[in-house]
């Protein structure tokens, strides 16, 4: 990328992460029609070794792998887009790459509103729903009053 600033990187990280974690079916529904694009790197499925830290904070170790699919595309205006998504869905990776490219151009605002924002909302709603169920299982301790204390 020619002009990467901290702010532009932070924004791009955010939408790429949203696209990676989003459901492929949801992205397909929100973004059904693909623009003209050229494939730079066809969708390829591989793994990423997930690492943890000893004791949660210490030295790192290899926990196990996860499946990831990546893809790279170029729009007619020359913008390149990358998709790195969880799982083995080539269409998911392709759409993520195209949307990544669009988000760097003049259509960014429209795509952000039509695709990224609803995807984020879906992820957040699912997370919130689990958090609320978990909160209902939080233990409220109470102390039994013993007779001799009165």
């Amino acid at each position: 990328m020619p002009d990467q600033t901290e702010e532009s990187i932070a924004k791009r990280k955010s939408w790429m992460s949203t696209l990676a974690k989003g459901k492929s079916a949801s992205i397909g529904k929100l973004f059904p029609d693909l623009p003209v694009y050229e494939v730079i790197r066809a969708p390829e499925t591989g793994t990423v070794m997930v690492r943890g830290r000893t004791g949660g904070t210490g030295a790192s170790f290899n926990l196990g792998e996860m499946t990831v699919t990546r893809c790279a595309v170029r729009l007619p205006d020359g913008t390149t887009g990358h998709g790195y998504v969880q799982g083995r869905d080539g269409e998911h990776a392709t759409r993520a790459a195209i949307i990544d490219a669009l988000m760097q151009g003049v259509d960014a605002e429209r795509v952000a509103a039509e695709v990224i924002a609803p995807l984020e909302a879906e992820f957040e709603a699912s997370r919130q729903s689990r958090a609320e169920k978990a909160a209902a299982t939080k233990v409220d301790f109470f102390t039994m009053v013993r007779g001799e204390d009165q």
């Binding site: 591989g46 793994t47 990423v48 943890g52 830290r53 499946t67 990831v68 990546r70």
Partner: peptide, 13 residues
């Protein structure tokens, strides 16, 4: 499957 790389250590906190 090809290995694309390794993640940053996950933040369990």
């Amino acid at each position: 499957l090809p290995r694309f790389g390794a993640s940053r250590p996950v933040a369990t906190s």
